[in-house]
């Protein structure tokens, strides 16, 4: 086991990038230098040996509050916080007073009285994390708010691309599927645009607002046309309830028109890569065989990078808290 401390991390606990805000609520509003420094920092964390235990966030308390079910994001934040040496409390929402009608603000005020340093929240309503941030002293990380943003997902996607391809600037990236209901799509469009990628979205008319082009993306309804010349194909999860005649006619029709198969992928660049934020619907968004193709699929790398990104984000917010503490003392 590696017992020598990592030269960079151990000697420079204040090497964390600074965020423009006390919270991380979305990608919109972040600038390129901030994003780049978060990615660089996360890249260092990603290179750490698997068992490396850091103590940068010793004494910091992180609460995770997930109003929507999640396994991978919650576990990822939990693990990231522990690896950084923070204490983690996973607030159980399903069994708590929150389900008994306590309002989000009452919950926030109650939790705030326990003096957490960082609150990681996922909520089914857009804007919920912004609302929470107004009522707490802690720094808030938005782990997904309704259909609005999911900033750490976009950051981990960028880190995944960065590490595999080496750069993001100028890449042709197609985001495919349920854009209308996707916070991952919105965060990724913001982030990858800032980093200089050319973004196109591919979606049936019923799953994409026509105003999406105002965000500077090209819109395709024909997947085969949209995939031409792409370097990265980013698939989005289609919720079960949207497939049966509501927003799309049927699962098989969706797969026929928008499911990624080896045949459709052949229209993209020869070495085009596949990404998916998970959990995947095999046979809906992607053929099972393609999902398991390690040459093309980055899906497990995305999960891995998730931990590194969240370590960097937690550190950056904790660093911001320390700075403000110092200011307050003066």
């Amino acid at each position: 086991m590696n017992t020598s401390p990592s030269p960079y991390l151990a000697t420079d606990p204040m090497g964390a990038p600074a965020l423009p805000d006390r919270h991380l609520l979305g990608i919109e509003g972040l600038n390129r230098p901030t994003i780049t420094s978060l990615l660089e920092r996360a890249n260092q964390f990603a290179d750490l040996p698997a068992r490396e235990q850091l103590s940068h966030l010793k004494g910091i308390t992180v609460f995770t509050i997930f109003f929507e079910n999640s396994t991978r994001t919650r576990v990822s934040f939990d693990l990231a916080a522990r690896k950084m040496g923070a204490s983690v409390v996973n607030v159980p929402v399903a069994t708590s007073s929150i389900k008994k009608g306590e309002s989000l603000i009452d919950t926030a005020v109650t939790l705030n009285a326990m003096h957490p340093d960082i609150l990681v929240m996922r909520h089914q309503n857009s804007g919920a994390s912004l609302l929470l941030s107004k009522y707490v002293n802690a720094a808030v990380i938005n782990a997904g708010d309704g259909r609005h943003e999911h900033p750490t997902q976009a950051l981990l996607d960028a880190l995944t691309i960065q590490r595999r391809v080496g750069y993001i600037e100028g890449l042709n990236i197609a985001i495919c599927g349920d854009i209308a209901n996707s916070r991952v799509a919105r965060s990724n469009i913001h982030l990858l645009s800032i980093l200089g990628a050319n973004i196109r979205v591919i979606s049936p008319t019923t799953l994409v607002p026509k105003h999406i082009t105002e965000m500077g993306v090209a819109l395709y309804h024909d997947m085969e046309e949209g995939l031409q010349g792409t370097d990265i194909v980013m698939l989005l999860r289609l919720q079960q309830e949207r497939m049966q005649g509501a927003e799309t006619p049927s699962q098989r029709e969706y797969f026929h028109r928008y499911g990624l198969t080896r045949e459709k992928l052949s229209l993209a660049k020869p070495k085009a890569l596949i990404m998916h934020p998970g959990p995947m619907n095999r046979g809906v968004e992607i053929s099972s065989e393609l999902a398991d193709d390690l040459e093309r699929s980055l899906i497990t790398t995305q999960v891995e990078m998730g931990v590194a990104i969240r370590m960097a984000c937690l550190e950056a917010l904790a660093f911001g808290l320390t700075k403000s503490d110092q200011r307050n003392m003066k």
Partner: peptide, 16 residues
């Protein structure tokens, strides 16, 4: 629906 459907509802992720 949560707000008027348009560019802003799209950006905010609110139902139009």
């Amino acid at each position: 629906g949560e707000m008027h459907e348009g560019e802003h509802s799209m950006r905010l992720g609110l139902r139009g």
